Simulated scan of single mutants.
Amino acid sequence: MLNPEETEAQFEQRWWELMNLMRERFGKKPDMNALLLLIGVQELGQGAGPFTKEQKQDLMHIATCKIFSYSGYYELDRVDEEGWPHYRLVRPVPFANLKEQERMLKWHVLEYFDAQEDEE
């Protein structure tokens, strides 16, 4: 869950550190869609593509489900015969205004990359 003890400044610092790392790695700062696509590709585990527009949307959906699984909103249901993960909604994601949604997404993306770092 969101860390209530983390100040807004600490949260923003973590976010900018991640953005700087992504800029170093890929040559430009990614937007949220690019981050979700990156996470989706990583979760699929089949390399960088090429992917159709529909597959890219599916990859972003996989990423969203994966990152929201950290808060118990989704869980992995199965992996199909082509290796694509499928998630099921466990409980509804709470309604939030646009600013809250952005912060929630950022927090979950940070958690994802923290978890990846822990696995290395």
Rank of each mutant, 00 (worst) to 15 (best):
S69P: 06
L89Q: 05
V109Y: 10
N97W: 06
V79F: 01
K53T: 10
L21G: 09
L21K: 15
T7Y: 09
P85F: 07
G27Y: 13
N20Y: 08
N3I: 06
Q42P: 00
F26G: 08
N33F: 10
L36M: 15
R14D: 10
R88D: 09
Q116L: 09
E100G: 03
E8D: 12
D31M: 02
E117V: 04
L18G: 08
Q116G: 08
A115R: 11
N3S: 12
G72Q: 09
L44W: 07
L18V: 02
L38P: 01
E100T: 04
D31Y: 08
D114W: 07
P94M: 13
L105R: 03
W15A: 01
L98D: 13
G27W: 12
L59G: 06
Y70P: 00
P85I: 01
L37T: 07
F113W: 13
V41S: 01
R91C: 02
L110W: 09
K99V: 14
V93W: 06
L89R: 09
Y87L: 11
L89S: 01
K28T: 11
M22K: 10
S69V: 01
P50M: 09
E81W: 11
W15C: 02
W84T: 07
E17M: 13
K53G: 03
L110H: 12
L38R: 15
H86Q: 10
D77Q: 12
E5F: 15
N3A: 05
P85N: 04
E24M: 07
D77H: 11
F11Q: 01
S71Y: 11
F51Y: 13
K56R: 15
T7P: 07
Q42G: 09
E120T: 05
H86K: 14
R103N: 05
H61S: 11
P92E: 15
A63I: 04
Q46L: 14
K56H: 08
F51I: 02
L89K: 08
M60H: 02
P30I: 03
C65V: 02
R91E: 07
K66C: 04
K106G: 00
M60L: 10
P50C: 14
A115S: 07
R78Q: 14
L105T: 04
N3C: 11
K66M: 07
E12F: 03
Q10V: 01
Q13W: 15
L105H: 05
W107A: 13
E6I: 11
E6L: 12
E100W: 00
L21P: 01
W15D: 00
Q42A: 13
K66R: 15
K53A: 11
L110I: 14
A63C: 04
W15N: 00
F26E: 14
P4M: 10
K106D: 01
G49T: 11
L2F: 12
V79T: 07
N3W: 05
F51S: 08
V79L: 03
A9D: 10
C65I: 03
T7K: 10
E43I: 06
A34I: 02
E24I: 02
K53Y: 03
Y70N: 06
P85W: 01
E100K: 13
Y70V: 02
E17G: 13
E75P: 08
L105C: 04
G49I: 15
